[in-house]
Write a protein that binds this DNA or RNA. Structure first.
Lengths: 140, 140
DNA sequence: CAACAGCTTCCCGTCGATGGAAGGTCAAGG
DNA sequence: CCTTGACCTTCCATCGACGGGAAGCTGTTG
């Protein structure tokens, strides 16, 4: 099948498919006499796999790594479990950061009305927050 | 004072300071006879303000907008509160997404041991997740 | 005088796509 | 025959917020 149909089936932009091919994530497919890319169902599966893995938070580089395991006839599951472990830890950290930030934003909004009108400052709302805490690291 | 001292005081890379100047977030400072940038305490304040606003989740574009209010002698607080409102909504959405994903990762890991050894699949762990749910939109 | 830190400008790379332009081929319908 | 529309190639640009490094200047110290 041609690239457009693959794109429709998987729900991906055709540009994305060619991009994946370009970075070696998808193998170069066979070509029709016309020069059009000719994909098989396997390619669709592989693409779906990539999107699933991506949804689970894996980067394209990690996914490439997983696919490389297969080429070496090894099973990537141990590697994958390691990645997932790190994912969970990372998620926890980020969720905690976001919860803190949310807390602070709510408090900031709550006090915003009572803030003095000071024409010399950039923004009383933000500087109120600045006064209390001196620049902890940015949440990346 | 020179750029290195500013960087130390605020806790920012000198590259970042020059970058902010490049995108118009910081005004071009005076220059010493040597050509070195010569900053004032006001510049340090402005930079601190930028970092605080950034820590609150505002983009550099939004911060630039806030600073532009000041140039027009208007107070940005209403705008800022609107931004913060959207921030909170966005945080809630992202935290919910992350919680879902975390749930799924945990479940996946939990069942990983019991998964069949299937040499034809890319990775049993990931494809187990794929089988259950057919590609909801990616969490951005 | 030489070393070294700090500064300058300039350009490239990151991540994961996506958009667009330019210029061409191919297949189907009216 | 003509026109769509889908596809092909290559290349370049964009988003955000920087970081790295090269090559060269300044300023201080031993």
């Amino acid at each position: 099948m041609r690239i457009g149909e693959v794109a429709d089936r998987v729900g991906v932009n055709t540009k994305t498919i060619r991009y994946y091919e370009g970075i070696g994530l998808l193998p170069a497919p066979a070509r029709l006499p016309s020069g059009y890319r000719d994909y098989s169902d396997d390619d669709v599966d592989r693409l779906r796999f990539i999107r699933t893995a991506q949804r689970l938070g894996l980067s394209l580089a990690e996914i490439a790594e997983i696919l490389a395991f297969r080429q070496r006839a090894e099973r990537p599951c141990e590697y994958v479990l390691g990645v997932l472990d790190r994912q969970v830890t990372d998620l926890d950290r980020r969720m905690a950061e976001m919860a803190d930030l949310r807390q602070e934003l709510i408090a900031l909004k709550k006090h915003a009305d009572r803030l003095p009108t000071d024409p010399t400052c950039y923004c009383a709302v933000i500087e109120h927050s600045q006064a209390k805490r001196r620049l902890p690291p940015l949440a990346g």
